[in-house]
Simulated assay, not measured.
Amino acid sequence: MPAANDRKVVLVTRKTRLEDLIAKYLTAAQARFYVEHLGADFSDYQREHDVYQAERHRTVQTLEQWGRYQIIDRSFLPNFLFGPADIVVALGQDGVVANTLKYLDGHPLIGLNPDARRYDGILLPFVPDDLPALLREVATDKRGFKAVTMARATLTNGQVLHAVNELFIGARTHTSAVYEIAAGDHKETQSSSGLIVATGLGSTAWFKSIVNGSLAIAGAFGGQTEPASYSAQAWDSHALRFAVREPFPSRTSQVHLVYGELTGSERLSVRSLMPENGVIFSDGIEADRLEFNSGTEAQITVADRVGRLVV
C-alpha cells in the first residue's frame, strides 16, 4: 500500500469489558477478585480482552503501512470532526459500527469483526486480515457499499440527532413519559414508557422485540395459537416505523396512535410535557442525548444523510 496515500484512515475502537472493570476497580487483580467473589468466570473477560488487543494490533500494523491514520475511542465520536475524504474503520462489535455510522456523512465505513467466534457480526463482514486489500479498493472507489437509511430528530432549539438503528423518546428513569404526539391528521396526549422510531436496519433490533412481544400478548388474549408474523424492512428503505411502549389509557391520555410508518417527507411530531428527565437518544447511547423537557418539540423524519457500509 502506498505510504503517500492522501486519504486518512480513522480507526474507531472500543474498550473491552476488562478495561471497563479495571477503570472501576483500578487494577486487573482487584477486578478478578470482584468477579470471582461473585462466582463468575473471570477468564472469559481476559480471553475477550486478549483477542481484541491482538486484532487491534494487527489492524494498526496495516494502518502504519498505509500512511495517514488516527485512532479514537468510540466515546469521543460525538465531538470528533471527520475530514470529508476520510475512510473510517470500526473494530467490532456491531454496536460500534452503528454508533460510528450515525456521525458520518457519506464516508465509507469498514466494519471489522475482532472475534468471529464471539460476535455474530451482521455489520462486520470483514476481519483485520482483509483490511489491506479493502483500503486499496475503497480509496480508489472500486469497492461497493450498502446504503443505510438514518432517522433524524430535530428540536425547536435547532439541536439535531441522527440514528442508524432507532431513536428513543421518553424519560431517563422508570417513570412514565408524558407527551403530545402527532402524525398526519392524528394527535393525542400519551403516557407511556416512551416510543421507539426505527430505521430499516433498526427494524431487526430493539423495534423487532417490541413488536413481537406485543403481537404475542395480543395473540394470547385473542386466543390465537401462533402470533402474527413480523417482517423487517430493508436497510435502505426510505421509511421509518414507530411504536409506543406500554401506552396507558386514562382520563388525560389516549392509546390510539401507538404504531405507524413515516415515508418520504412525512414526519412525527412529539412535544414534551415532562418538567424533567425527558430525553431523546439514539442507538442505545444515552450519554449522547438531547434533553427533552416541557415545551420542547421534536420533529422526526427520514434523514437526508445516508450511511455507506462497505461490503
Rank of each mutant, 00 (worst) to 15 (best):
F76G: 08
L77E: 09
P78L: 05
F80G: 05
L81T: 15
F82W: 09
G83M: 09
A85L: 09
A85P: 00
A85S: 14
A90C: 07
L91M: 07
G92H: 07
G92M: 04
V96R: 08
V96Q: 07
N99E: 14
L104G: 03
D105W: 03
G106R: 10
G106V: 00
G106N: 06
G111N: 03
L112V: 10
L112S: 07
D115Y: 07
D115W: 04
D120T: 13
D120S: 12
I122W: 08
I122D: 14
L123I: 08
L123C: 06
L124H: 09
P125G: 13
F126W: 10
V127K: 04
P128N: 06
D130V: 01
D130S: 11
D130I: 02
P132K: 11
P132Y: 11
A133H: 09
A133C: 05
A133F: 11
L134P: 00
L134K: 04
R136W: 11
A139H: 05
T140Q: 15
D141P: 02
K142V: 00
R143N: 05
G144N: 13
F145I: 03
V148S: 04
V148A: 03
M150Q: 14
A151S: 11
A153T: 12
A153S: 08
T154A: 13
N157Y: 10
Q159A: 12
V160P: 00
V160Y: 07
